[in-house]
Design a protein around this nucleic acid. Structure first.
Lengths: 333, 333
DNA sequence: CTGAAAGCGCTAACAC
DNA sequence: GTGTTAGCGCTTTCAG
């Protein structure tokens, strides 16, 4: 069933049917109704390919993230997909993995689908330096479609970023620990992404400001798996820390397991703050204090910017959202 | 940059360029190379819309699930997307939510995108009765494209199902609890989906077989949120149970919180088994015994079937995979 | 308000 | 091997 048959049945030309499909005001209500009835009776759906060819858009947005199985990204994808759909767009999802080259391939590949915009989720696509050469592929992409980053900052024409102020959040988290008298705060992370680096800087700034030395042996990078973290810490000859700031809840959960094995009381002997305020945080026992990184808020901002941008309106190229420390039992001073 | 310009620059006809794009063997290696070079130099990408129009396929698969933020579905989506991409297909994602009508809309809407196949994730799309009238919308969809269900069973032409034998898994989980001497096993669930009902049947069968009465007051349905579960149980005048079989890890985690509040020892006073073997299970303290529902395996099966089906080969319309109880601390008898 | 007709960029049957 | 040409189903001028 195509537009010709509908035109035939409705006794009008295909141009009119097309106008009805696109709800053009140039058609009389009467014929509109008639055509619509015919369309429904035959439950006709315009061919999106032909439509895409004509309009050069299939009303789809590309969503790229390293891994949807990760709770943070899953939440972002869920939120973006819902809102975009309400706005009339469908989403093509591409999980690139974390490897550098794969991310580049991801962006290049998804662009071939002629998406109307690209949303890139997760700071691992960005670089510490917003002008870095290695994120040129994002700027390339932005030459074709507007690009939106969730929690990353890349400077460039047609690139729009919504990010959580991880630096400040980490700064206050560390400060909180310092205020409670902790002096040996372990920084635990699983990546060197833009965001992770921001957190580290915030952490170090807090220490420095408090006149506490930043110790190399209190900075650890490891895989974000609960048992890996636990085992890694257990294997260390001695971990000389009285608090931990972890850049992911999973890492913090691992620390909790470690503390339990060691017989260390939490938070008395070891205070812990995680990041993302995920379901893991409330699953932990004792429940984990965690920084809420406001994914939903970031997504809303991106959606709003995207709507504006797609209507040719100007948009801020960067919006910051304050992260927010959720106090639970692991910092129950 | 389109096929005409490339043809022009390469000094061949558009037919030849098209053949090169599709790697037809009817082109001499020499011209192939020449054309390819021109394409690269101008980094030309064939217009997928035009291609779709001609071939009536854009090489995309529709992925529908209630909510990607749920770990089970996120894992499924991640797995499916990766493998499908390797096979040359991209994915359109649609998160329908759990409402009945919304699921129907989801399927109808995504079909309009002229996907090559539809994968439906989660048993909430199915019904206890594989021939039920209410899942007619799936059969309707199957008239247009092959439909694959992850963990649901609907009978119908062009519908293919991969499912975890939740009945058996629940049966053995409950049996395990009975074997350890428990007689008052709480069944805790968050839904009446096909899969949840299977679990309940398995649970009841185990009790019946052991001559243990199935008590109405030991079957509870509630929201899958850790604190909701905890609070619900705490508010009950008295919960007369010595074990819990939960259909989701999140529910089981809530029970754990409840036990802790009540001062009940786990597993001594209360043994617990969760479901899905998610990250939550190892995050719990004590770590949660949980049934592994084999999402990855189910996805692999669907992928394999899909490949066969898309090549016109025959495929089993239903494949079962054994769920598998992972014993951890909450059943450490 | 409506219709005729020229694309949109590609595929594939057919001719050479 | 390669080129010509007729679609694929829609949008959009341009006429009326």
């Amino acid at each position: 069933m195509n537009i010709y048959e509908i035109a035939e049945l409705a006794g009008v030309s295909i141009a009119t049917v097309s106008r009805v499909i696109n709800d053009s005001p140039l058609v009389s209500e009467k014929t509109k109704l008639r055509v619509r009835r015919v369309m429904e009776e035959n439950d006709y759906t315009p061919n999106v390919f032909a439509r895409g060819l004509g309009l050069n858009s299939m009303k789809t947005i590309g969503l790229v993230c390293p891994d949807v199985a990760d709770n943070y990204m899953a939440r972002a994808v869920a939120c973006l997909e819902r809102d975009l759909r309400e706005y009339g767009y469908n989403c093509i999802l591409y999980c690139s993995g974390y490897a550098w080259e794969d991310r580049r391939i991801a962006v290049r590949t998804i662009l071939q689908k002629r998406i109307d915009a690209l949303v890139v989720i997760g700071s691992s696509y960005a670089d510490d330096d917003p002008d870095a050469e290695r994120v040129e592929y994002i700027r390339e992409a932005a030459k074709q479609v507007p690009v939106f980053l969730i929690n990353g900052y890349i400077r460039g024409e047609n690139i729009f970023c919504a990010l959580c102020s991880d630096y400040e959040a980490a700064y206050s988290a560390a400060s909180e620990l310092l205020r409670s008298g902790r002096r040996k705060i372990l920084f635990l992370s699983d990546s060197h992404s833009y965001s992770a680096n921001q957190k580290r800087s915030g952490y170090e700034a807090a220490l420095r400001e408090a006149g506490v030395p930043v110790r190399e042996d209190l900075v650890i990078y490891t895989r974000n798996r609960i048992d890996s973290v636990r085992d890694l810490l257990l294997e260390m000859p001695q971990l000389d820390a009285d608090a931990v700031f972890a850049t992911e809840d999973g890492l913090a959960a691992g620390v909790l397991k470690y503390a339990k094995r060691r017989g260390a009381a939490v938070p008395k002997d070891l205070a812990i703050i995680g990041y993302n305020n995920s379901e893991l945080a409330v699953c932990c026992d004792p429940e984990l204090s965690s920084v809420d990184s406001r994914v939903d808020r970031l997504c809303k901002i991106v959606i709003d910017s995207l709507k504006l941008r797609l209507n040719g309106k100007p948009v801020n190229d960067r919006v910051y959202v304050k992260g927010c420390l959720i106090r639970r039992m692991t910092t129950d001073f």
